[in-house]
């Protein structure tokens, strides 16, 4: 598979919040995402609970199962082992923190079943 390593996870990357404030990716906090979504006119935050992590070492990926948002939608995604997800109150977390550190220089916690991640959806357009 064609694996994708987004540059914005590289330690030191500059991230702009909704209020215009600039922060380094490694310094982001839960509130930064929550407040940015509140200011945003069309995006809102969903809580996505990790319910499954299936390692796929041949591809350097993992199959992740999430239960997403108030409607508990079941979603399955394939992500690289080093891909950082932002866990409420915990920060950046991945399936293989050592690989995240090596790839991005970004300190990550170990992502585990039961962790609640920040994801986005579009606000209901009235």
């Amino acid at each position: 598979p064609q694996l994708h390593y987004p540059p914005h996870f590289m330690k030191g990357s500059i991230i702009q919040l909704s209020n215009g404030e600039l922060k380094r990716v490694e310094d982001l906090q839960t509130d930064d995402f929550v407040q940015s979504a509140e200011i945003s006119s069309d995006l809102k935050i969903d809580s996505s609970t990790v319910v499954k992590i299936e390692f796929n070492p041949d591809h350097s990926t993992a199959i992740l199962g999430f239960v997403v948002g108030e409607h508990k939608v079941q979603v399955t995604v394939e992500a690289t082992l080093e891909h950082p997800f932002f866990v409420f109150g915990q920060g950046w977390s991945s399936c293989e923190p050592d690989r995240s550190l090596h790839r991005y220089g970004l300190d990550c916690q170990k992502l585990s079943v039961g962790d609640v991640c920040i994801s986005l959806t579009h606000k209901d357009v009235q």
Partner: peptide, 19 residues
């Protein structure tokens, strides 16, 4: 120096509205 928007860092896992 590139500046990335905050919403690029977290995934969109569902589309809008209830199923």
């Amino acid at each position: 120096v590139p500046v990335f928007p905050w919403h690029a860092l977290v995934p969109f896992l569902t589309n809008t509205g209830p199923p």
